[in-house]
Nucleic acid binder design. Structure first.
Lengths: 200, 200
DNA sequence: ACGCACATGTAAGCCGTTACATGATTAC
DNA sequence: GTAATCATGTAACGGCTTACATGTGCGT
């Protein structure tokens, strides 16, 4: 039920329409929580039924009408209680790494192209985050608390993207060396030597 | 359908039982793909129905009987085709960062304790990965290709955990400064100045 | 007339989580 | 006897993905 709380957290400071929330999730929230348009509209309906948010129809003349949602006292209370509870790390399910693991089965050019593509993706996000950082988070010591907490989430996004770029770089470097000389479809030999190791 | 392919990739080099696969997923695969016991057994049944793997009952006297699964030629072909296709980055849904965003709503001690807890978690995983690295990935240039590709996935895990530790450290440092002087339940003021910014 | 930004929905199906369930063998 | 490891399942539920669907108002 964390999507609900991510929405609540976004509604604390100002009333927002579903359409605007979708944009927020695509833009500034995406670095730590992704949600689709369909998910968001459904969750808004649930939250309203539950009384944690209240929607208000706003008639607009220059645009289609919209519905503005505000967090209710009950919603704020629920959010605070949820924030105070411990949470587990997110599960990781990264297709690219499954493909890297099986990379010896295909033409090395395939993996190299894919890692290169990922590098460009993360590099673009990183540059965007840096622009946001420069434009909106300069005088942090003078900024209000919510903004300082928000900066912490941006820092996570920056680190995450930079780290991916660095992994792509070291992987590309390796691919340009050893792997380029290998023949595709190389017969796999026993390589899982570390199978016996366990996580405490 | 990537769990299926993660399983296929694990079965290429050797026949494995469901029980062993569960352990593999908890230990060496967890750094890029997490799956529960229930998921794995269900997926093994589906893969066998589809003809991508073949199971064989093995009678054991010193232990309960087990079922060994092998990848079939059709399964290997399917895996190769899947690996050759491009894949999107994984979706991130990190509860901790939603809580950090709303951190100004609660006692600063709550967030600090939670970030500290996360730091210890990632630090422990990092140390484990480093042990695996030293024990099993020393002579990489002489190692067979599959092992070298596998090392790339371990490197991703090492980087990921180290990056989290570093973010926790910089966040804790900040929390020990500014945030400790703030009163809990501070009234939120307009802080979402960067709402207008868009991701290309 | 057409495309774009704005604005909000429905529905099917798959995947993952949670809870429950059973049983064999070894070691203490 | 009882805990730990080995070994394999079933079932309900909820969340996420994918595809489809509708309509307004502005600018060119």
């Amino acid at each position: 039920m964390s999507l609900a709380h991510a929405i609540l957290a976004s509604l604390v400071e100002e009333a927002t329409s579903g359409y605007e929330l979708v944009k927020d999730f695509n833009e500034r929230i995406a670095c730590y929580w992704q949600a689709s348009q369909q998910q968001i509209y459904r969750e808004l309906n649930r939250l309203e039924e539950q009384g944690w948010i209240a929607g208000e129809r706003v008639i607009q003349t220059d645009r289609p009408n919209k519905k503005l949602y505000r967090i209710t006292p009950a919603g704020l209370q629920a959010l605070k209680e949820w924030v105070a509870q411990p949470s587990d790390p997110a599960a990781i399910r990264e297709e690219l790494l499954v493909k890297v693991l099986a990379g010896y089965l295909v033409d090395p050019l395939v993996i190299r192209a894919e890692v290169q593509r990922r590098r460009e993706y993360h590099q673009a996000r990183l540059e965007h985050y840096h622009q946001v950082e420069e434009a909106y988070f300069q005088n942090l010591t003078a900024a209000p608390l919510p903004k300082q907490f928000m900066y912490r989430t941006l820092r996570r996004g920056i680190r995450y993207e930079a780290d991916w770029v660095a992994w792509c770089d070291e992987t590309l470097e390796w691919l340009n060396g050893t792997a380029s000389s290998a023949t595709p479809g190389t017969k796999p030999e026993a390589a899982a030597d570390w199978l016996a190791t366990n996580l405490g």
